[in-house]
Simulated scan of single mutants.
Amino acid sequence: MHVLVLGAAAGGGFPQWNCNCPNCHRARRGSVHHWPRTQSSIALSADGKRWLLCNASPDIRAQLHANPALWPSELRGSGIHGVLLVDAQIDHVTGLLSLREGCPLDVWCTPNVHSDLTSGFPLFPMLDHWGGLRWQPIELSDERTVTEFAIPFLTDISLTAFALHSNAPPYSPRRGTPSCGDNLGLFIVNRQTGQSLCYAPGLGQPTPLAMRFLAAADVVMVDGTLWTDDEMQTLGVGSATGQQMGHLALDGPNGMMALLDPLPKRTRRIVTHINNTNPILDDQSQAASALKAARIDIAYDGMQLTL
């Protein structure tokens, strides 16, 4: 199973176009310690030719151009054979508009996400004019029943979706009162090797079910949006806390670092969806050093895994 990180930044990318925080200021001026990143997305493949796009970021055109495995091999086409959405956030879905020439396109998502993308942000109706998005519903597992599903072109790869405790998009009627299906994590297993990835970029709070999948995975890729909960407030670039946005900060006694610490020693830990304000984007910072000491990797555009 091939895993390709297309983008590792949170909404707005890094540097963010309208931000001059210390990180963005230095990245924009070419600092070798501040690597630019596009908005978060990964791609999965069993054969290195047919790929499932997990989230379609606004940066999709640049991401496709940067990864030859996704280039067209025929007169028209692409390595992308389908899209799976873990939520309906703007930075995870607006890339579908840039894929309109590839419609009809299969899109796997929950009923909640489909509802938001049919009404509040009506991408499904809009793209009907180009051939449309074919909705493939995702059934979520719960504490009692684990439901696996398959993507037809991902041979020998099984996926299990589970609800994450986070928040719905700002345009959703469930914003502030999210329900099961607004955000999901994926437990992905290569049946041939037995190796697995738990992909949960929207992990806002731990639940017993989420911890169960994290503990079972060989690799975990989770939310690394903020270093501290009040980070954006402290820098004067926003008024919301991480908790209010649905993100669990990395630092602190109940933060993501502490959450990952009890996982088996064999588990590879990776953080993604990193906000432009997060000090870990400076690879010489104390925060980046703390992650390294905790054996946690920082995702970057072009990162590749083979499981």
Rank of each mutant, 00 (worst) to 15 (best):
P125H: 08
T306H: 12
D59Q: 03
M1S: 12
P36M: 02
V83K: 00
F162C: 11
L248V: 06
I274W: 00
V5F: 14
V146Y: 00
L127A: 09
L226P: 02
G120I: 00
Q39I: 03
M221P: 11
A217I: 07
I296G: 02
D59M: 02
S57L: 06
T306D: 12
A240W: 12
V219Q: 10
D218P: 02
L281R: 11
K49G: 08
V189R: 14
A10C: 06
G48Q: 03
A210E: 10
G236F: 10
Q243C: 13
A210H: 12
S141M: 09
Q136E: 13
T160I: 15
L214H: 11
S119Y: 13
L159D: 08
N55E: 14
G77R: 08
Y171I: 01
A62Y: 03
A163C: 13
D116G: 05
I138D: 06
D223K: 07
T225S: 13
E101C: 06
L127S: 04
D218A: 04
S239Y: 04
N254P: 00
T118S: 15
S41Y: 08
M245F: 05
F153S: 05
L259H: 08
T241Q: 05
T228Q: 12
T147I: 15
I151A: 05
T147N: 12
V113C: 13
D182H: 14
S239W: 04
L154Y: 05
P111R: 04
I60W: 08
R26L: 12
S166M: 13
L97P: 00
L250S: 02
I188N: 09
A8P: 03
D230R: 13
T193L: 04
L209R: 07
P170H: 07
T155F: 04
E143S: 14
P104A: 03
L140A: 08
D116V: 09
W17P: 00
C24D: 01
V222H: 12
A240I: 01
E139W: 02
I270K: 05
F187L: 13
T228Y: 01
D116Y: 13
S78M: 09
S141W: 03
G194K: 06
H33Q: 02
D87Y: 06
F149N: 08
G238V: 01
T193W: 02
S239H: 07
T160V: 15
S115R: 14
A215W: 05
P58T: 07
G246T: 10
L53P: 11
P206N: 13
S172H: 02
H247L: 10
L214N: 11
S285R: 01
G79Y: 02
T234F: 09
R50K: 14
I42C: 10
T207L: 13
D128V: 03
L186C: 09
F124M: 03
N190Y: 00
R37K: 15
T272G: 01
P58N: 07
D59R: 02
M257E: 03
D91K: 03
I42K: 09
S73I: 05
V83D: 02
V146M: 05
S31E: 01
P15E: 01
L235I: 03
T155C: 10
H33V: 01
D182W: 06
P173V: 04
G181N: 06
Q39T: 11
L184M: 15
M211R: 14
Q243W: 11
G176H: 02
G77M: 10
G13C: 03
